[in-house]
Design a protein around this nucleic acid. Structure first.
Length: 565
RNA sequence: GCCGCGUUGGUCAAUCGGUUAAGACGCCUCCCUUUCACGGAGGAAUGAGGGGUUCGACUCCCCUACGCGGUACCA
């Protein structure tokens, strides 16, 4: 019997979407796509105390940014809704099953107050048993429908006494199942406690909700973090009592993502401490005002983010590390997912992004980079490749939001290798009004790891170094011969057409030879005149994109500075 | 404490009884480049410990150690 493949990601809306959460989504998504299945988003908002306003929308937005959009969910109702557990509770869905369990003798009413529970725990606590459980042994001492006299339970219920429904776990049974990643796992019911299934406020706990909803939504495969493994036997039991083991989804408990130093689960705190993002996008807790930076705002590309996440606990057995989402869909397999947790390494994460910046067409992220420039107060002129671009005038940009709406298509990268600067190419296609900007990005992208690096690497194209250029490497060796050379260079370059790198270089070298100066002694000064410092791509490529007018203007300006000082 | 799951270089990791134990990140050296980067070549660095099983264990079994997770009317 092979049922339709249906998977779900079931977060609770309590905060930002963690790296590990995104990876869980990714594995769900890959598996669903691979099997022509359906990927569902279910919001597990059963804990009213921890509910955070805006968190659900944030999760939706994060998934959209990643390109991992669910086929069904609160935003996109399917045939299995509603998709929020609070709404499902209102329909009486969970209560019905809880009562059924009571009727079957697999669950019971418990009237213990929180204080009584606390008292029980402190009273029975011993060094050997630091956390006494409400189990087959202790429940006999508590106030529940198993210990109450006949009729008392009904009376309490009728009186409206607050109660919970607990699962009735019988001791000394083995409960096992086959985990898709770990193989056979089994537990003794003696170690289990009588978990609350239905809370006093009528909400189900995770334990009840997850099996009821997985059943009702016909989930075929359930992936979740390893922290759920200890409670899996409770879920298996519930499946057995309610719907039958043959209908239970196949479980896969994913390894944890660990902090880079020391041990333990990676937390937002670690990101703050070590200086890297842990959430998909920026997130500010509305209650505490506590901010957290996201991968998006740090300057990651969605395909890079997905790629690095995929490799945290999975590989295809070859040396390949760079995968498009389509390749991942094709090659992903649960049996190659690690059992052990993986420490998160931000350096490696950056490497992935660098690779993706290099191989994605710049047009896929130029909008985001443009917004970053704007946020830095640099407006990007829309200029054709052949007109000489005007240096941007610095414009104040109050409240510029670097977190731009990123619409990177999750599509794979352009497989054809992009040539470097090819003015003719983009001029010919002429589809974009911002060819010049994209040519600039193309020229500097190999030295950019994160999107904001583009601002640092390319702002000189739009803001002339002016009086801020660092002439210190040049000044000590400056002389009349060099001064003369550049004066002449301005003159000769003025005649040059077309204005292209190879021609510029030829002319430059010819003149250097004529002046009997080593080109090397002239190249660095020229670079600093144009760029303002010792960095950047090839100097003639820079001049090409700067355009003749601007190039000559910058040389002239620098000459003035050198003379007067 | 108890239960469960893990453990190959600093990190991600390949190996599914026989290899000089891959590859990548990071680090170091050199080359390319009259800047930075990219690229290329090379280097240092690994099977937690102890018992078995076997002709032969990183690989299978057991024990120990260590780590993590769980032990809530949180998920």
């Amino acid at each position: 019997m092979s049922k339709k493949v249906r998977l779900r990601f079931a977060p609770s809306p309590t905060g930002g979407l963690h790296l590990g959460g995104v990876r869980t989504v990714l594995y769900n998504y890959l598996f669903a796509r691979q099997h022509d299945g359906v990927f569902i988003l279910r919001i597990e908002d059963t804990d009213q105390g921890r509910y955070v306003e805006g968190a659900e929308q944030y999760i939706l937005d994060s998934l959209a940014w990643c390109g991992l959009e669910p086929d069904e969910g609160p935003h996109k109702e399917g045939a299995y809704g509603p998709y929020r557990q609070s709404e499902r509770k209102a329909l009486g869905i969970y209560e019905k099953y809880a009562r059924q369990l009571v009727g079957q003798g697999h669950a019971y009413y418990a009237f213990d107050t929180p204080e009584e529970l606390e008292e029980m725990r402190t009273k029975h606590k011993t060094p050997d048993n630091p956390s006494p459980q409400y189990n087959h042994h202790l429940r006999r001492k508590m106030k529940n429908s198993l210990t109450l006299l006949p009729g008392e339970t009904e009376a309490l219920l009728a009186a409206g006494t607050p109660y919970v429904i607990r699962i009735n776990i019988a001791p000394d049974e083995e409960v096992g199942f086959t985990d898709l990643i770990r193989g056979e796992v089994s537990f003794s019911t003696s170690g289990l406690d009588d978990k609350v299934l239905l809370k006093a406020d009528g909400m189900p706990t995770y334990h009840l909700a997850v099996v009821v909803d997985d059943h009702l939504m016909e989930i075929s495969h359930a992936f979740r973090g390893e922290e759920w493994l200890p409670s899996a036997p409770v879920h298996v039991l519930l499946w057995k009592y309610l719907f039958g083991l043959d209908r239970m989804p196949q479980w896969a408990h994913l390894p944890l993502i660990l902090k880079p130093d020391g041990n333990g689960k990676l937390s937002k705190r670690d990101g703050d401490r070590l200086g890297f993002p842990v959430f998909a996008m920026n997130w500010t807790d509305p209650r505490t005002g506590d901010p957290a930076t996201g991968f998006r705002e740090t300057g990651f590309l969605p395909p890079a983010f997905l790629n690095l996440l995929a490799m945290l606990g999975w590989n295809d057995g070859t040396n390949q590390e760079l995968f498009t989402i389509d390749e991942l869909i094709e090659k992903f397999s649960l049996d190659r997912v690690h059992k052990g947790g993986a420490k998160f390494d931000f350096e490696k994460a950056k490497w992935f992004n660098h690779e993706w910046i290099k191989r994605q067409p710049v047009s896929s992220y130029s909008d985001r980079v443009r917004a970053l420039f704007e946020a830095a107060g640099i407006s990007i002129p829309a200029a054709g490749p052949d007109s000489s671009p005007h240096p941007g005038t610095t414009v104040a940009n109050p409240g510029g939001d670097p977190g731009v709406p990123a619409s990177d298509p999750a599509a794979g990268p352009d497989s054809s290798p992009h040539p470097g600067v090819s003015a003719s190419d983009s001029a010919a296609t002429g589809v974009s009004p911002s060819n010049h900007f994209e040519q600039v990005l193309e020229l500097v992208k190999e030295r950019c790891t994160l999107l904001p690096d583009f601002v640092q690497q390319a702002s000189f194209f739009f803001v002339p170094p002016g009086d801020n250029m660092d002439l210190s490497p040049v000044k000590p060796k400056w002389n009349d011969a060099k001064q003369l050379f550049f004066v002449e260079l301005i003159r000769q370059f003025g005649f040059l057409t077309p204005w292209l790198a190879p021609a510029l270089e030829d002319e430059f070298k010819e003149m250097a030879a004529a002046a009997a100066i080593k080109p090397g002694d002239l190249l660095l000064p020229l670079r600093i005149m144009l760029v303002g410092g010792k960095f950047g791509p090839g100097v003639f490529d820079i001049a090409t994109l700067l355009g003749k007018e601007e190039t000559l203007r910058r040389i002239r300006h620098a000459l003035g500075l050198l003379q007067t000082s």
